[in-house]
């Protein structure tokens, strides 16, 4: 017991780690800097978040053939990585959505400003500007941008459309789409706060994926607020970001799994 669990005790503590340097990016000045912490040590790969995102954001249904042909749309996906060979085999789950890079490679290449950075650090997507050059996906190192290959209506026979969330548009054929950090929820919360002359409090707004996760893997919040749950989570020594070496400065922080 002793060494085993004390060993754990010492290392497991998320305390005392360096606070995250909020990544540099233009257009600051907003009180918000939305970010996310994904604790891989909690994630069981149950997929609730995947379906939650479908439900919240009116993701199209691709159907069997196009899914196999790589045209399915999952703003949130659970990547599974094998390591080794049976019996010395392990597998890891990584929930991956748009990393909302502070230096987003997808943004400068868009010729019509359809994808751009909001003052709150979101990688925004204004669908009705997008002309479908698909350049942004080519330049997205995380492959989390999804193109509308066909009319979404095709796979929403009545009465299925009634399940759609009226706060989010159904994207038309030929435009690019991706995780928006459930921006419509952010908008609602921040305009409510504005109306009451205050800023959005921690926990007032969360994303559909975070909300659905009963294992509490995902923490969403304002990175500029040092007391927010996400800021605390992100201060962990277990923190890392996907493909950090590329300098894309994502605001999605992952917490390493395993004993640490």
């Amino acid at each position: 017991m002793a060494d085993l669990l004390t060993a754990t005790h010492a290392a497991v503590s998320d305390k005392g780690a360096h606070a995250p340097a909020a990544a540099p990016y233009e257009g600051a000045g907003s009180p918000y800097r939305w970010g996310m912490a994904v604790d891989l040590d909690r994630c069981t790969g149950c997929g609730a978040c995947v379906v939650a995102c479908h439900a919240e954001n009116n993701l199209p249904i691709a159907g069997p053939i196009d899914t196999d042909e790589g045209r399915s749309v999952d703003w949130m996906r659970i990547e599974r990585y094998w390591e080794g060979h049976y019996p010395e085999i392990t597998a890891h789950f990584v929930p991956v959505m748009c990393q909302h890079c502070s230096n987003a490679p997808c943004e400068p290449v868009c010729p019509v400003f359809a994808t751009y950075h909001t003052p709150e650090g979101l990688n925004g997507m204004v669908y009705n500007r997008c002309i479908g050059t698909q350049y942004c996906q080519n330049n997205d190192p995380y492959n989390v941008r999804f193109f509308n290959w066909f009319e979404a209506a095709l796979n929403f026979p009545e009465p299925l459309p009634n399940q759609l969330n009226p706060d989010v548009t159904v994207r038309s054929r030929g435009v690019m789409e991706k995780c928006t950090f459930c921006v419509h929820r952010i908008r609602e919360a921040s305009s409510d706060a504005k109306a009451e002359g205050r800023t959005v409090e921690d926990g007032e707004v969360t994303t559909a994926c975070a909300q659905s996760c009963s294992a509490n893997v995902i923490t969403f919040g304002n990175l500029l607020d040092p007391h927010s749950k996400v800021s605390k989570a992100v201060a962990s020594a277990r923190r890392f970001r996907l493909l950090e070496g590329l300098g894309t400065e994502p605001v999605v922080y992952y917490l390493k799994g395993g004993q640490a």
Partner: peptide, 15 residues
């Protein structure tokens, strides 16, 4: 008329 799905393109091969 039909959409880009008639091509062999798919994520992440957009070009």
């Amino acid at each position: 008329g039909a959409g880009m799905w008639v091509t062999g393109l798919h994520r992440p091969v957009m070009w």
